[in-house]
């Protein structure tokens, strides 16, 4: 499991900018950022180092923050690899809430971060032959 920060963002100008500023001032290093938005609000999902410090700094600055456990799956850098992951997930009837992928440009390794509604997701993925990262995806 990897720790993800989720930050509630009202659709008001400058909120994302303010969030990034706070993280910068706290010397937090972001590895992945994914912003999901609807008509009325957005949620920024962040994978970073020093998750606890980042959450505290954001809360102090008035943001609403939750930490969520997401499953970080290593995806081989080959065509069709992600498809195989989803195939395994679908076959086991595992319910997925959302997922996003990041490629580390230096190592060319791809990681998919997924939040599942079904608790056995991790076992299903491992059985399908995928490697799952622990808490320190980007500095192991």
């Amino acid at each position: 499991m990897a720790q993800q920060l989720s930050v509630f963002l009202e659709n008001a100008p400058g909120r994302l900018n303010e969030m990034a500023r706070v993280l910068g001032e706290t010397q937090v290093n972001m590895h992945a950022l994914f912003v999901a938005d609807t008509n009325d609000f957005g949620v920024a999902r962040i994978i970073c180092d020093r998750t606890e410090d980042a959450a505290a700094a954001l809360r102090d600055a008035g943001f609403s923050v939750t930490t969520t456990d997401v499953v970080a799956v290593e995806i081989p850098d080959t065509p069709g690899a992600l498809g195989k992951l989803f195939e395994a997930i679908a076959a086991a009837e595992v319910d997925i809430s959302y997922c996003y992928c990041v490629v580390d440009p230096t190592t060319k390794k791809a990681v998919s971060f997924c939040r599942f509604k079904t608790p056995n997701a991790q076992a299903v993925i491992e059985e399908a032959g995928f490697r799952i990262f622990g808490d320190n995806v980007f500095h192991s």
């Binding site: 993800q4 989720s6 609807t38 609000f41 949620v43 609403s64 939750t66 939040r115």
Partner: peptide, 18 residues
């Protein structure tokens, strides 16, 4: 205001609530 304890990471839950 959303209750501070609400798990808003599940956007669908938040949309349903709205």
């Amino acid at each position: 205001e959303l209750a501070p304890s609400f798990d808003f990471d599940e956007i669908r839950a938040l949309e349903q609530l709205t």
